[in-house]
């Protein structure tokens, strides 16, 4: 055994965030184990089992199509409504799952935090990994739906991985902040799901982003893109359907997402030291 490969040094006066990324990488197996655990137990003792993972996005798509596509007759700029809605909804679900589940992950796993050391950031990140499985399934459903509507993507499709990456950044940014804050303020546990639900209505999932910016005064129409998912969903629709895209808006949204992630990462590690005491 190579004894000195692992030297653990803990100093009360050391800075809080040094070397965190490296430690996280050492614990990637734990991250995957936790994510697999969550995924496997999710449909335990259900009749349909993993079929639920496919049923959920399809049902939501049908409802959105009925309400926004048929009843309200939303103008999607020539894109068939079901695939329009599904494209936004798949990314939104990934975002909201990472944000809500990740945000609640620390309080949920407090028994582990009090008993064992590991980089705490593994917990919210593992939730994002679980959400990624849903995203993958959603994308397959979307692909199938696009094939049905004969809406074949162009070369812009190469931007889709970017949109997914940005969604991860936004969702993880929110979950780092909220999970770290919820240690001290349990109120966040309860407020978060509502907040994300409200945000759904302010996000161009069921309607195009233009509708949202047009309802704001013209001088601050860009504010619609302070919601990171606005620009990211625009980007996804550009990649899938060559929908119109204003890159500046995407930049605003991505900027917000990155700021959330970076500041969230720092705040999380600032409070990480005392998590076991506060919980």
């Amino acid at each position: 055994m190579a004894q000195n490969n692992h030297t653990i040094h803990v100093d009360a006066n050391a800075p809080a965030t040094a070397g965190r990324l490296k430690t996280l990488l050492e614990y990637k197996e734990l991250l995957l184990s936790l994510a697999t655990r969550d995924y496997r137990v999710r449909f335990v003792q259900t009749r349909l089992g993993y079929v639920w993972a496919i049923v959920q996005p399809i049902v939501l798509m049908l409802i959105l199509t009925f309400v926004f596509g048929k009843m309200l007759n939303v103008n999607t700029g020539g894109i068939e409504y079901p695939i329009f809605a599904l494209s936004g909804q798949v990314l939104w679900s990934y975002f909201s799952f990472s944000a809500v589940q990740g945000g609640q992950s620390l309080v949920q796993s407090q028994h582990m935090i009090r008993k064992i050391w590991f980089p705490r950031v593994v917990l919210p990140l593992s939730k994002a990994a679980v959400g990624f499985m849903d995203l993958a399934i959603g994308l397959v459903v979307l692909g199938a739906a696009m094939a049905v509507y004969k809406a074949l993507p162009s070369v812009s499709l190469i931007a889709l991985p970017l949109a997914i990456l940005f969604t991860w950044i936004a969702g993880t940014g929110v979950s780092l902040w909220t999970s770290a804050l919820s240690i001290r303020y349990r109120d966040i546990q309860h407020a978060l799901p509502y907040f994300i639900q409200f945000l759904f209505f302010l996000t161009p999932v069921a309607y195009p982003a233009g509708v949202l910016s047009k309802s704001l005064p013209e001088s601050i129409s860009w504010a619609a893109y302070l919601n990171p998912m606005s620009g990211i969903i625009d980007l996804a629709r550009f990649s899938l359907f060559d929908a119109e895209l204003v890159w500046n808006n995407v930049l605003i949204s991505v900027g917000v997402a990155v700021i959330l992630l970076v500041t969230g990462w720092h705040y999380f590690h600032k409070v990480e030291r005392n998590m076991a005491d506060t919980l």
Partner: peptide
């Protein structure tokens, strides 16, 4: 075991713990 962080002092452990 690093579950909680010290308020003072330090320690070093050589090896995985």
């Amino acid at each position: 075991s690093r579950i909680t962080f010290p308020s003072a002092g330090k320690f070093t452990a050589h090896g995985r713990m």
